[in-house]
Design a protein around this nucleic acid. Structure first.
Ligand SMILES: [Zn+2]
Ligand SMILES: [Zn+2]
Ligand SMILES: [Zn+2]
Ligand SMILES: [Zn+2]
Lengths: 149, 149
DNA sequence: TAAACACCCTGAAGTGGCTTTAGGGTCAAG
DNA sequence: CTTGACCCTAAAGCCACTTCAGGGTGTTTA
């Protein structure tokens, strides 16, 4: 299978696949000796599918590598696998909590504009001009699940 | 006021302040002629405070610039300001919805591991090995509010 | 047979919002 | 007169890609 076909099958771009190969998230593809085109066998397809499945669940590359490593430990129990998922689930729910806090604060801010009028009197601007309320903490960027943009 | 003092006051790093100056999010600081140290007056402090306030609410630099521009349009009404907040509020609530979807899917996935045992039989791995369920869409990276990590 | 068009390749740079690193200069206290 | 806290710059690194520039290949159709 050529790269374009694989990309369609897995609903990603060819650039993404080449990028994964470059950083070693998937093994190197086999090249056509005539034209240097990449070719993929069932093994490649399954591995990439696994990776895309994990990415669709917003796991980081690091987490994915942990899963792939743990999976290949023959005979070991699946504790590590379960732990990766548990931790990642916490990443997601932590971020949800943060964003919900943010949502509240933005609602409050929005209500400061009682009746739209001149810029300078807008309650939103007045609020933003004032020092930051200690309730607002912003997003922690230690969490790999990203914010809202 | 020197940069370190300002950073403490606004609860950010000196590097962040220098970075904002570099990209033009805040105007250039005044320099001490002897040692080239940055110095800040009340104007600078207010502007940076406004920016940090917006960042704590997870607004993008672009959104902040829109607010700053709209604020300086003397006599204009505050419609633009309100719109920026409304749009950003939607960014945040859209991301919350996405992450809640994700959270559900991760819960479902986690339950696939009924009783921890050998890797290969772990329901989590089996699920991740199978094709992506069409219910899973992953995060849209068109939204500037980031994910969970 | 030649032009058009879809596909493939590479390497480098750009995205956002910073943080980190490397390599220095300045200043007050002990 | 040295220690340590502070300041400076330019460049690279972070993540997970995307975009760009420049070119090769392969099939179809006029
Ligand atoms: Zn995670
Ligand atoms: Zn208003
Ligand atoms: Zn926004
Ligand atoms: Zn398990």
């Amino acid at each position: 299978m050529k790269i374009g076909e694989l990309a369609k099958k897995l609903n990603c771009t060819v650039e993404t696949i080449r990028y994964y190969e470059k950083i070693g998230l998937i093994p190197p593809s086999v090249r056509d000796q005539n034209n240097n085109y990449r070719h993929y066998n069932q093994n490649h397809i399954e591995r990439l599918s696994f990776v895309r499945h994990c990415r669709a669940l917003a796991m980081s590359h690091e987490e994915i590598l942990e899963l792939l490593t743990a999976r290949e430990q023959d005979g070991a129990s699946c504790e590590k696998i379960d732990l990766v998922i548990d931790n990642h689930l916490k990443h997601v729910s932590d971020r949800i909590s943060e964003l919900q806090q943010l949502e509240k604060q933005l609602h409050t801010l929005r209500k400061q504009c009682k009746t739209p009028g001149a810029n300078q009197e807008c309650g939103i601007i007045q609020e933003l001009d004032s020092p930051i309320d200690s309730n607002i903490q912003g997003l922690k960027n230690s969490n790999h699940v990203s914010g809202s943009h």
